[in-house]
Design a protein around this nucleic acid. Structure first.
Lengths: 198, 198
DNA sequence: CAGACCATGTAAAACGTTACATGATTCG
DNA sequence: CGAATCATGTAACGTTTTACATGGTCTG
């Protein structure tokens, strides 16, 4: 009763196959809901037998055929009920933060490496978000777009995704700087033992 | 193999009971790892039989006795190995963002309410973080603290928690404003049907 | 012709949530 | 005297992850 609504939300206004949905979850939706392709295929099957979506076969040449899904009225109603209902507190899990919490127990240089990798990833995602948001706005500036566009939900969600990644980037940079400065200090202290020994 | 490391990280340097751990996870750690008390009790039992922590009984008067846990060397080694190993991509799940993505399908006023509730919650958390960070720093300013303090991990994690909540607050306010402005527009449009009908 | 992309699933194992269960003390 | 806090668990159920499984086309 959980992934269900994330899938329905993605399908609202888009006719998508399991594969397309999986890519969406990977690049876009993963910023607020994470799911693996296998889950999506089984979830779509369940949603179809529950009557919330309908699938139709699309025959392709040069590629495997695919089955694309659309929301039914029951699906839209389900989404509407979900929106009106209570929200569960948002859950996060981030290995990097667990590692940072326990930083003293591990190899600092290795942790800095991981912060740098994550910073690079965040940079890439920010650029992706910027491109997607800019494409959505078209010619309009953001405020005008947000008042005039008929669909504003996905754009606002995109803004949050971008801000989240920006925050991750800043934090990784700051933290890596701090850890590097502390390594410097330790190194200086231990390479000048003459001073300490006196 | 997942909650395990979040618990070990919390126990690093602190001797805690299941109950104390549960409160920590509720107020502090939930910003990067979410877990319910039941999970923590069972996890502590598992960690003890795995040899990563040791518990000892503390007899109290006026309160139920409790069992407090400390990391063993094997536990610290496990943590060190975890830090050196690969990190899983961070997972988020947030009902509010799912609802925003599907905003067109639901009651906008109800969604605005939920954004406001969440904003208020975020405000409270930010203040909590500020108090805790300031207590940790003591007299020192942040930069000095981050170079001099022997333990810097939990502080950096706290900075991230605070930034995350700040970002949530800003986004909720911005989004609620946008949705309200759009409601205004629709109301204006539908209360002047004469103009539309001509 | 190897590797990436398109396309879809099943099964078992691990993990997380909800419900159930209990009981003493302190505060208003 | 009711509610909150302290304190710890078990069992059933639902969800997610990992591993297994397959096969065609397109690009360099």
């Amino acid at each position: 009763m959980a992934l269900r609504h994330a899938v329905l939300a993605a399908l609202l206004g888009n006719e998508l196959s399991g594969y397309q949905l999986a890519r969406l979850f990977d690049v876009n939706i993963s910023n607020y809901w994470h799911a693996l392709p296998q889950q999506l295929y089984t979830e779509l099957t369940k949603l179809e037998s529950a009557g919330f979506v309908v699938g139709r076969e699309v025959v392709q040449r040069g590629r495997p055929n695919k089955r694309v899904y659309t929301l039914t009225e029951a699906g839209t109603a389900e989404m509407s009920a979900f929106i009106a209902g209570p929200s569960k507190p948002s859950a996060i899990r981030d290995d990097l933060l667990v590692k940072m919490q326990a930083a003293e127990a591990g190899d600092t240089e290795r942790l800095i490496e991981q912060l740098e990798d994550r910073a690079a990833e965040a940079k890439g995602k920010i650029e992706q978000f910027e491109r997607r948001l800019s494409r959505a706005r078209g010619e309009l500036d953001e405020d005008t777009f947000l008042i005039q566009s008929p669909w504003v939900g996905p754009y606002l969600v995109g803004l949050r995704g971008k801000a989240f990644e920006q925050e991750a980037l800043d934090w990784c940079n700051r933290s890596a700087d701090v850890l590097r400065a502390r390594l410097q200090d330790t190194a200086t202290a231990s390479t000048s033992p003459t001073w300490k020994d006196r």
